[in-house]
């Protein structure tokens, strides 16, 4: 009985300690962002490795999600004779929800896990310590550019996901199922609002990029510096980021579309 209570207390303390350290880490990263200004090349390299290298999986997933939306939407709408609204349905689902969320989940799996493994291995092989001893702050030199790259890359990836998804919906709806071409696009144009829909989607994906970067980089930086520790941290990154994105999505949706 006492043992159980003690263990509970202990894990609660450890949890809050880790949370505190995670917040301090975030502050240090944010404070390190201005030092990136004179060294754009560091950011560009990272944009390539978290952004460009995630492009293929995002594009393919976007296409299939859009196609499925086209199919399912058509079968539901056609019963009400409302199949001309297919375009709106596909576009709004993607722009408001699926674009940011699915792109975020894929990003956590593709880029987030890679970042955790990379940083964790740099720690395990004393590369981070080595930098510190060369009077180079690894948070500024290594972490900050990766952080900013994530925050920039995810909104762009989510936008590409949504755009390709709409194409997929168009291909299935108009191309295969015979929905009217003009109605598909004109309804999208009329009913999708730039601020209420598109911008809210962008805000979501920025928030997800922020959270994904924070979790992935902190897990790497705080990993137990052994091969086991790094592999566990990598798994945790994917699990925690996915849960964080899904729950944050609920909160943001409730705030934005009430």
């Amino acid at each position: 009985m006492m043992g159980g209570l003690q263990r509970l207390g202990r894990s609660a303390l450890l949890f809050f300690e880790r949370l505190g350290r995670g917040n301090l880490f975030l502050l240090r990263v944010l404070a390190g962002l201005p030092s990136l200004l004179p060294r754009g090349h560091l950011l560009v390299q990272q944009l390539y490795s978290v952004g460009v290298l995630s492009l293929l999986i995002i594009a393919v997933a976007g296409l299939f999600v859009g196609m499925v939306l086209g199919l399912q939407g058509y079968y539901t709408l056609v019963d009400f004779g409302a199949e001309e609204s297919l375009g709106v349905m596909v576009a709004l689902s993607l722009v408001r929800e699926l674009g940011p969320v699915v792109a975020g989940l894929l990003f956590a799996g593709r880029a987030g896990s890679a970042l955790t493994a990379e940083i964790g291995l740099m720690k395990a092989t004393e590369q981070l310590s080595g930098m510190e001893m060369m009077a180079v702050d690894p948070v500024k030199r290594v972490i900050a550019p990766r952080f900013l790259a994530c925050v920039i890359a995810l909104p762009l990836l989510a936008a590409i996901f949504s755009a390709i998804g709409v194409m997929g919906g168009y291909f299935v709806g108009v191309g295969l199922l015979g929905v009217d071409d003009g109605a598909f696009w004109s309804q999208i144009q009329n009913r999708v609002d730039f601020f209420d829909d598109v911008m809210n989607g962008v805000i979501k994906s920025v928030a997800f990029g922020f959270v994904a970067a924070w979790i992935a980089l902190y897990e790497g930086y705080d990993a137990v510096p052994t091969s086991e520790g790094v592999s566990r941290a990598t798994t945790r990154t994917v699990v925690h980021t996915s849960l964080a994105i899904l729950s944050l999505d609920f909160v943001l949706t409730a705030l934005m579309f009430d």
Binding site: T125, E126, Q127, S129, G130, M133
Partner: peptide
């Protein structure tokens, strides 16, 4: 200067 046990070169 410090020479780490593992070398700590950037890989």
């Amino acid at each position: 200067g410090m020479l780490f046990q593992s070398g700590a070169l950037l890989t």
